[in-house]
Nucleic acid binder design. Structure first.
Length: 114
DNA sequence: TTCCTGACTCCAG
DNA sequence: CCTGGAGCCAGGA
């Protein structure tokens, strides 16, 4: 980032929204991107998650999955099972990288966060 | 500087 | 049902 001060805000906003996800709930990259006004930038949300691990306070990146409730980002955690274990510890059931009852635990910032 | 990649999603065929 | 292409944009080579 050479001349984009707004980029910093985008990443910061992503972290902030992710930290607002209630325990036991999950959301999607696209939902966050949409809430932040960059509808087509769902990939950037995932990109931001790459830096999430070093953020303070910690960012619960395990609560962000893709639009199908699939744990596509699990390989970016310390271990391949870390993401699933973290979610299950919060009450979210996961079977084979797929969040169960995804529709019920889904948390949309555009609707819930006003 | 250009080119390529990626924790995504939508739409067409 | 499955596959491919386009849009998106920050960073590294």
């Amino acid at each position: 980032m050479k001349h984009s001060p707004e980029t910093h805000s985008f990443f910061e906003d992503v972290f902030e929204v992710v930290r607002l996800i209630p325990k036991g709930r999950v959301t999607s990259y696209g939902a966050i991107a949409k809430y932040l006004g960059s509808k087509g930038s769902s990939r950037m949300v995932g990109w931001a998650m790459n830096a999430a691990h070093s953020q303070m306070p910690p960012v619960p990146a395990q609560r962000v999955v893709n639009r199908n409730g699939l744990l596509t980002g699990k390989h970016h955690f310390e271990s391949p099972t870390a993401m699933q274990e973290l979610l299950e510890a919060e009450g979210v059931k996961v079977v084979k990288e797929q969040v169960q009852d995804f529709k019920k635990v889904f948390w949309d910032p555009s609707e819930e966060l006003l």
